[in-house]
Simulated scan of single mutants.
Amino acid sequence: MSETNFISSAQRVIDIERQAISEIKQYVDVNFDTACQAMFDCQGRIIVVGMGKSGHVGNKIAATLASTGTPAFFVHPGEASHGDLGMITKDDVVLLISNSGETSEILNIVPVIKRIGAYIIAMTGNAQCSMAKLANCHIQVTVSQEACPLGLAPTASTTATLVMGDALAVALLEARGFTADDFALSHPGGSLGRRLLLTLDDIMHKETQVPRVELNQTVTAALFEISAKGLGMTSVVDGFGRMVGIFTDGDLRRIIEQRIDIHSTTIENVMTRKCTTANPEMLAAEALNIMETKRINGLIVIDSQNRPIGALNMQDLLKAGVL
């Protein structure tokens, strides 16, 4: 098979699956709304059940729901028949996933789920299937064709089901008013958590580590301060300790090009007056965005009296896992 055929085949698959996603938009209807309301009102957990490829998709849907504010977990129908049905209570909502809607392993446990009293949502590709008839609510996910040329391997249908699951999760997320901080609480060990939870107060250099010089000091003094603190900059303060400017490595390069005498020139005459500052409550991710947008390598953190109380640079963000 030539490289051209590989590419042609891959492009055909993408076109078919893109079409499948477009087709299921029609099924975001009153049944979808009913399913969302049932999941929103659920006093227990969302239990996702699926077999084979639908099970793999179901696992991902359960994980997405759980990480976006809707407690959920996946139960394998085979294991459910051998004890795992004990995980399901009358307060739960059970989401059954099957393209055909006739998966025997799932149909075998439906009577028990109904006896328990849990609310059942079926997500299938056939509105007339057994699961659709047995469920309290049915979400249709029908695609016109699979990407598999044999029409056998679940491809477009699993993609469409995954997208519908994402639609459920995001609709519920927005209904709950789920925030970035809420998301970070369920991802504390990952980079997402670090990006969303860390504030500048958590990572900035403080107290004696904050570079500062006074207006009447020379450029030479500022260079010593920059070197000592190792942040590539220093704040410039007035007689009351309030920040009035900043002096950076970039400023130094510019005055050297102008052949200014660094031993006699005061920092007041060469500093940058209108500089970007931050407050300690600012999220580290927000500070990163500011630094990237303004193309600066560091920030001075000030208090409510405009006094420098912290400082950080890109290296600090990198060490904290934010960058």
Rank of each mutant, 00 (worst) to 15 (best):
residue 3 E to H: 07
residue 6 F to W: 12
residue 8 S to E: 15
residue 12 R to T: 14
residue 16 I to T: 13
residue 18 R to C: 04
residue 19 Q to W: 05
residue 22 S to K: 15
residue 22 S to C: 07
residue 23 E to G: 04
residue 25 K to Q: 15
residue 25 K to I: 13
residue 30 V to P: 00
residue 38 A to F: 08
residue 39 M to A: 04
residue 44 G to M: 12
residue 46 I to F: 08
residue 46 I to H: 06
residue 47 I to H: 09
residue 51 M to P: 01
residue 52 G to V: 04
residue 53 K to G: 13
residue 56 H to K: 05
residue 56 H to T: 05
residue 60 K to N: 13
residue 63 A to S: 15
residue 64 T to C: 10
residue 65 L to A: 03
residue 74 F to C: 11
residue 75 V to P: 09
residue 76 H to T: 05
residue 76 H to G: 10
residue 76 H to C: 09
residue 77 P to T: 09
residue 78 G to H: 02
residue 86 G to R: 06
residue 88 I to W: 02
residue 91 D to S: 13
residue 96 L to D: 08
residue 96 L to H: 07
residue 100 S to G: 12
residue 101 G to H: 11
residue 106 I to H: 09
residue 108 N to R: 15
residue 108 N to H: 13
residue 109 I to L: 14
residue 112 V to K: 14
residue 114 K to G: 01
residue 117 G to N: 06
residue 118 A to Y: 03
residue 119 Y to Q: 04
residue 120 I to F: 07
residue 125 G to I: 10
residue 126 N to K: 14
residue 130 S to G: 04
residue 131 M to F: 09
residue 133 K to P: 00
residue 140 Q to S: 10
residue 144 S to G: 07
residue 145 Q to S: 15
residue 146 E to G: 11
residue 146 E to K: 08
residue 157 S to C: 11
residue 168 L to H: 06
residue 168 L to F: 15
residue 169 A to T: 06
residue 175 A to Y: 05
residue 176 R to G: 04
residue 177 G to M: 08
residue 180 A to L: 09
residue 181 D to I: 06
residue 186 S to I: 12
residue 189 G to P: 07
residue 189 G to E: 13
residue 190 G to E: 03
residue 192 L to T: 04
residue 196 L to Q: 04
residue 198 L to P: 01
residue 199 T to N: 14
residue 200 L to N: 01
residue 204 M to Q: 12
residue 205 H to I: 07
residue 205 H to F: 04
residue 207 E to W: 02
residue 210 V to E: 00
residue 211 P to A: 06
residue 213 V to R: 03
residue 214 E to T: 14
residue 215 L to P: 00
residue 219 V to C: 14
residue 221 A to V: 02
residue 223 L to W: 04
residue 223 L to G: 08
residue 227 S to F: 01
residue 230 G to H: 02
residue 231 L to T: 01
residue 238 D to E: 11
residue 244 V to L: 02
residue 244 V to R: 10
residue 248 T to G: 07
residue 249 D to S: 04
residue 250 G to S: 09
residue 251 D to A: 10
residue 253 R to Y: 06
residue 255 I to G: 11
residue 256 I to E: 11
residue 258 Q to R: 14
residue 260 I to H: 03
residue 263 H to V: 01
residue 265 T to E: 13
residue 265 T to N: 02
residue 266 T to D: 12
residue 269 N to M: 11
residue 269 N to R: 13
residue 272 T to V: 07
residue 273 R to L: 05
residue 274 K to P: 00
residue 276 T to K: 07
residue 277 T to H: 05
residue 278 A to G: 06
residue 279 N to A: 03
residue 281 E to T: 10
residue 287 A to H: 00
residue 287 A to C: 11
residue 287 A to R: 00
residue 290 I to F: 02
residue 291 M to D: 00
residue 292 E to R: 14
residue 293 T to V: 01
residue 296 I to Y: 00
residue 297 N to S: 15
residue 298 G to C: 02
residue 298 G to F: 00
residue 300 I to Y: 00
residue 301 V to D: 01
residue 303 D to T: 09
residue 304 S to L: 12
residue 305 Q to M: 12
residue 306 N to K: 15
residue 307 R to F: 10
residue 307 R to D: 05
residue 308 P to E: 00
residue 308 P to F: 00
residue 313 N to Y: 04
residue 314 M to N: 03
residue 321 G to A: 03
